[in-house]
Amino acid sequence: MKIKDGFLLRQFGEGSIVVAVGEGSENFNKLITLNSVGAFIFKKLGNDITREELIKSVIDRYDIDKETAERDTDAFIGKLKEAGLLDA
């Protein structure tokens, strides 16, 4: 899976924000604010990546147990899907 084209991530202080540009902005005029973990996953999803690869990179980066990483990553992916930002 991968983030659709037309979304831009920008860091501000400790948080990050996602805005739609180009065709993305035709259907999406909201803003998404992300914490550092969210921004990390969002960046990883800039290139095509499987759920398993994503969870592994979260575990490596944040040194957390598999169960927590799976739960948090799945929740985040669910939100991105709901908002229509993900290409399956």
Binding site: F12, G13, E14, G15, S16, I17, V19, S25, N29, L31, T33
Partner: peptide
């Protein structure tokens, strides 16, 4: 800061 950015972006033309 993160609140400021989101709120500010809603007050301009994107």
């Amino acid at each position: 800061t993160s609140d400021v950015v989101a709120k500010a972006l809603n007050q301009t033309v994107r």
